[in-house]
């Protein structure tokens, strides 16, 4: 599971480079995310635009990262593809996360 993180001021943007978060990769995802979010920041944005598929284990892993952030920081998600969006919506987890259609203005790479 490859994650690339980048600090933009008070925000850590984490991009998942793999194309799925499934049962085979969920624990690795969780562990890598926990390492990255140890670094303090006001906001954490997870760019999921490469993820074409997420199963319930993957969803559970994203939820556990959200909980690991504690009560003040909230996990923001960006770039949910069709299948990923469907899983979040059906399980009503779309109401738990702040979801951006694309990376918020100013967090996008130039070019």
């Amino acid at each position: 599971m490859k994650l690339v993180s980048e600090r933009r001021g008070e925000i850590i943007v984490i991009r998942v480079m793999d194309d799925r978060i499934d049962a085979a990769g969920a624990i690795q995802f969780k562990d890598r995310m926990r390492e990255i979010i140890e670094e303090p920041s006001a906001r954490v944005v997870l760019d999921m635009s490469n993820i074409g598929f997420l199963d319930s284990s993957g969803l559970g892993a994203v939820v556990s990262v959200m909980k690991a952030l504690g009560p003040i920081r909230r996990l923001e998600l960006s770039g949910l593809t069709t299948t990923v969006e469907k899983v979040f919506r059906l399980t009503r987890m779309d109401s738990v996360f702040l979801i951006h259609k694309t990376l918020p203005e100013g967090l996008r790479h130039a070019g």
């Binding site: 319930s56 969803l59 009560p71 059906l90 399980t91 738990v96």
Partner: peptide
């Protein structure tokens, strides 16, 4: 429960 530390991390499979 859809709040805070009680957020479920599993149990989605059979629902889906």
């Amino acid at each position: 429960t859809l709040e805070g530390t009680d957020l479920p991390e599993g149990g989605f499979g059979w629902f889906l």
